[in-house]
Amino acid sequence: MNPEHVLALYDDQLRRHAQPDDPHTTLELTHGVLRQTSTTHGWNGVIWSDLDHTTADAAITAQLRHYAGRPFEWKLYAHDQPTDLGQRLQTAGSTPEPAETLMAADTHDQPTTIDLPEGVHLQPVTDPTGIDLMLEVHRQAFGTSPTHLGHHLRTQLAQAPHTIAAVVAMAGQRPVSAARLTLHPGTDFAGLWSGGTAPDWRGRGIYRALVAYRARIAAERGYRYLQVDASDDSRPILERLGFVPLTTTTPHLFFGESL
């Protein structure tokens, strides 16, 4: 796999020509950025930009005015221009979260054998009850149960079920790990998201099993690449599975500032 080629495809298909991730959102190309705006509880923010040192500040100001005091995210990639865009965003009031590594792998190179610890089984998420199990895993793994994630998953399952495949690993009646696969029709990419495992169940191969489960689905549906924003914890596991780093991405959060 050629990382530069795959990154160029990613930028073109999932950023420059992104599709709304929620029926209640709109995309708009303006001031050199592609932004998403939600009318409900969905994600607001900048997906792609084509800026330079002469246009960046005006573009940032335009987004602050557009979102009019609502929280939003500017998803910054290491290769975005200008090179000091991150500093400009912070000067304008953003708070950067920890950087993650954008990684990709050829779907057909991924193992699809699912090996689980004794007593653990996989339960596909097909209804609100399954989403509640996913949120419980999120609470155990990360200490939060984000309302916006629950809203997004319920909307996606109800209105665009062909774009998602989610699963929960159950130890008896307890949800101990969960993950989802986001499918992007018309592109080469399927995305791995929301992978998390309860602390007392880590290190037993469940994360790898959930990658294999989702890789099998992506391959069956004709997607060439898997992509993931990997944390420092998951990056070593993914590298052992053959995922290749493409770049890094840093969420810059604006908590309701306006101009």
Results as ranks from 00 to 15, higher is better:
residue 2 N to D: 09
residue 2 N to C: 12
residue 3 P to L: 14
residue 6 V to G: 06
residue 8 A to Y: 01
residue 20 P to S: 14
residue 21 D to K: 04
residue 21 D to G: 03
residue 22 D to W: 03
residue 24 H to I: 01
residue 28 E to Y: 15
residue 29 L to A: 11
residue 30 T to V: 07
residue 31 H to N: 14
residue 35 R to K: 15
residue 45 G to E: 11
residue 53 H to T: 07
residue 56 A to G: 14
residue 64 L to F: 12
residue 70 R to C: 05
residue 75 K to H: 11
residue 81 Q to K: 14
residue 82 P to I: 05
residue 83 T to Q: 12
residue 84 D to S: 14
residue 87 Q to S: 06
residue 89 L to M: 04
residue 99 A to N: 07
residue 103 M to T: 10
residue 104 A to G: 12
residue 121 H to A: 11
residue 122 L to Y: 04
residue 124 P to F: 11
residue 129 T to R: 03
residue 132 D to T: 09
residue 136 E to N: 10
residue 138 H to Y: 09
residue 142 F to P: 04
residue 149 L to D: 13
residue 151 H to G: 00
residue 158 A to V: 00
residue 166 A to M: 11
residue 168 V to K: 10
residue 171 A to V: 04
residue 178 A to S: 13
residue 183 L to P: 01
residue 188 D to M: 10
residue 192 L to R: 07
residue 192 L to F: 13
residue 197 T to A: 09
residue 202 R to V: 10
residue 203 G to F: 13
residue 204 R to Q: 09
residue 206 I to F: 11
residue 210 L to E: 00
residue 212 A to M: 12
residue 212 A to Q: 08
residue 214 R to Y: 08
residue 215 A to V: 12
residue 217 I to D: 02
residue 220 E to F: 04
residue 221 R to G: 01
residue 222 G to H: 04
residue 226 L to V: 05
residue 238 L to I: 13
residue 241 L to W: 10
residue 248 T to K: 08
